[in-house]
Every structure is written in structure tokens, then in C-alpha cells.
Amino acid sequence: MGYLRFIKTYVLLNISTAMEYRLNFFLQSFFMILNNVAFILFWYFLFGTLDSINGWGLQDFVGLFGFAALSFGINAFFFGNWTRVGEIIVNGELDFYLSLPKDELSHILVSKSSFSGFGDMIFGIVILLLFYPITLTNVLIFVLGSLAGALIWAHLLVFAGTLSFWLGESSGFFQSLSHLTHVFTSYPSELFPAIIKMVFFFIFPVFFITNVNVFLLRDFQWIWVVGLVIVTFLVVALTRFVFKRGIRRYESGNLVTSRI
């Protein structure tokens, strides 16, 4: 309970920071929404002459993108440091978090917020509500599916960043994995050969971020719900375990910073 209150305090602080620069906040959110509209146009034009691609229609493709935007937005806005864990380790900025009594990884994740993430969240919600019927089941899938997707996505990238404990400077490697997650969250798994599906469902489970949610909207099956819960739990637990192990290898940079 104490952790939830701690996270809530940080979120409120981040929101008040956003409001301090509200013009910038609204501009970034607005431009991010416009940015995302371009991708919807892509699918719209593509489906101008096609009914479906490998059994997936416009609604399914837009659903994938809606979930991707929503999960990305949740991470960017609430867990803004999700892409900076490797950088924090390499720069020796971890000292600050280690010296405080709260869980280090949670603290790192919530201590930054990206304003444009708010635009992503709004866009994702609007797109899902526009393209799918609003039923209780669908709304539950939107909410729980995007939260699970956000947790998996954030922890996969945190896992990649955590490898900096062993590899040192590895921003190129991280950027590549980050790019990979962006691409594979936006396309249906049905497009790819079996080996790719196997890798991205079971080894680096990117397809669980968005694809499974669209599977559930197309044809609700409990097996996918169970799979989503198990994968979310495993990815979060494994990442946290690896991060804790990595801390043992951490060498302080004696970096002195002020946090204002």
C-alpha cells in the first residue's frame, strides 16, 4: 500500500509539472495525436482496395495500433524512465535511487514523465472506442489488456537496459531492441513465419503487448487471458530479478547531482 501511495505522489508531481508548462504539454500531446493519425491513414488507404490481409481487416489493424499507442502512452507518461534504465546505470545515476528506502526500479520508472505520452494515451483510447463496440467485455479488454501490454513492454525494455550492468555502454543494442518492439507491436503475428511467431510469443514476447488483445476482441478465449497473465507476471518477475542481480555488479560513479 505504501508503494502505491509513493507512486501516486510521483504521478501527481509529474502531472503538476506538466501543468506548469501547460502550453508545451498540450502542444506535444496534440502533435503526437496528429503523428499517430498518419499511421491510421496508412491502413485506411491500404484497405481502400482490400477487404482483409491474412484474415485481418481494417478494424484489427487499427486495434493493434490503438493498443500500441495506449500502452506506449501509459509507459511514457507514468513510467517515463522506461527507456533510460541503461543510460542511468552507465552514467552512474543509480546512486541516488540506491540511497533511498523505496524499491529502486519502481522509483526509477516513475521519476520521469514524457508529456507526449498523454497524447498517445488519448489517441489510443479514442481509436479503440471509435472502432469497436462499447460493451463491458470490450472495455475490460481495453483497460486490462493495455495495462498488461504496458507492463510487458516497459519490462522488456527495462530488461534490455539492465544488461548495461554487464555490457556497459550498449545504447545501440538497446535502440535496436526498442525499435524492434515498436515495429512488431504494430503488425499482426499472422503475417510472419512460424519461427518469428515462436520467438516473439515465447522468447521475447512482443506479440503479447498488442496482438493478444486483438485476438481477445476478435474471439474471446480464456486461454489467451491466462497466457497474458502468465507472460506479464513472468516478464515483470524476471526483469526485477535480473535488475536486483545487476545491482550487485554496479559500480558507483560518485556522481553528484541535484534534483530540483
Partner: peptide, 18 residues
Amino acid sequence: LFLGGFGTVVYTFALFHL
């Protein structure tokens, strides 16, 4: 530099299958 080109590969791979 090598990994910088990886983004192009991933994107081309996905679009090729599309």
C-alpha cells in the same frame, strides 16, 4: 554504426511480410 542499420532491417522485414 552496425546496429544503426538494424532498424532499417526490422522495418523492411515487417513490411516485406505485409
